[in-house]
């Protein structure tokens, strides 16, 4: 068994739209080891959710997914038959969505929904599946778990529903969990609890997790590794500690300046901004996609953008190796 069990290289997602092709994701690389949490962070339109759906093989036939390599524990996901993908999904890799109300079927009890995947993928009796469901509901912090099995989704609060979703994702003991904005719809107090729970479970069960979010605070607190996406490209990756302590790409630095930080940013003082909007990704996309919004853009940004490695596992794509950043620090 190799150390790296999810290995993605050159993942590209094209969506045909009226009048051209939307190059939603363009050649991104990342890898994941067991027990690791990778956070993919980006704003709307960055392609972070598409990336997760591509991994799960959940994108429609119309959407074209290509990659040099997309291996899950030795299985090439892109070459897998629909049947193979189905046996992976829900069993060895599972997904948690943002909106727990729409992801749970209102017509079935949560017990039925919890047991469904397990009865489908594993050779177990209903009683065994039921015992596992109760066990997991308790594990995700739901009291009176046995009696909850007979309840319907609408009888639960948002936080409880998201816990049920997590329990459901864990039923078959997956090795990889993909969580797409799992706490965005929840209150801050519940968010902290759910995130703690997820991280603890990942550590305890030796799973790997990809957490997709737009919230840099969540990333900093949860991630081992960070991948910053902008308009379909991975602009910076690295260990969370490196990326947050020494962000290199102008976009990462810009994002961090945008958020108010109690105790750090001074009250009433203007926050940093990133001017402009995400460019259209329909048609030919070349050079650095961030150049239209970047304060440090130069003519070279239209050409090929080199990758730099400022530290072990820390990488970013920019024409400025580090000069721009140093200039900025001196200015500050």
């Amino acid at each position: 068994m190799t150390d790296t069990f999810l290995d993605v290289k050159g993942l590209t997602i094209d969506i045909p739209v009226g009048g051209g092709t939307l190059h939603a994701v363009r050649g991104i690389d990342f890898e994941l080891k067991r027990g690791e949490v990778l956070c993919i962070v980006g704003e709307s339109g960055s392609g972070k959710s598409l990336t997760s759906l591509a991994l799960m093989g959940l994108l429609g036939r119309r959407i074209k997914v290509r990659a040099e390599r997309m291996d899950f524990d030795g299985t090439a996901l892109l070459d897998a038959s629909p049947r193979q993908m189905r046996s992976l999904r829900g069993a060895r890799m599972s997904m948690i969505f943002q909106e727990p109300m729409t992801s749970l079927n209102p017509a079935y009890t949560i017990g039925d929904q919890l047991m469904e995947a397990m009865l489908l993928h594993r050779d177990v009796s209903r009683a065994e599946a039921r015992a596992r469901a109760v066990d997991l509901l308790e594990k995700v912090g739901i009291t009176a778990a046995a009696s909850r099995l007979g309840q319907y989704p609408h009888q639960l609060s948002g936080g409880l529903r998201q816990r049920v979703m997590i329990a459901m994702a864990l039923m078959c003991g997956p090795e990889l969990i993909i969580a797409d904005e799992p706490t965005t719809a929840l209150d801050v107090t519940i968010q902290a609890q759910i995130l703690r729970l997820l991280v603890d479970l990942v550590r305890e069960m030796g799973m790997a997790m990809i957490l997709i979010t737009h919230d840099l605070g969540v990333v900093a607190r949860v991630a081992d590794k960070v991948a910053v996406m902008y308009a379909g490209e991975l602009v910076e990756t690295g260990l969370a500690a490196d990326v947050f302590r020494a962000p290199m790409h102008p976009y990462t630095r810009g994002l961090l300046r945008c958020i108010p930080q109690p105790g750090k940013s001074r009250r009433g003082e203007p926050l940093g901004t990133i001017r402009g909007i995400v460019p259209s990704l329909v048609g030919e996309v070349s050079g650095c996609v961030f150049r239209t919004r970047c304060d440090e853009a130069v003519a070279a940004c239209r050409g090929t953008i080199p990758q730099h490695w400022p530290g072990d596992g820390h990488a970013f794509r920019c024409v400025h190796a580090s000069g721009a950043r140093i200039a900025e620090q001196e200015g500050a």
Partner: peptide, 24 residues
């Protein structure tokens, strides 16, 4: 508890335990 739940982008601090129980 609300203040504790604010996740500032500071790596290494982990997710705080608000000890709020769950249900509003």
């Amino acid at each position: 508890a609300l203040l504790q739940s604010v996740l500032t982008p500071e790596p290494g601090l982990g997710v705080p335990d608000t000890q709020l129980g769950m249900a509003y």
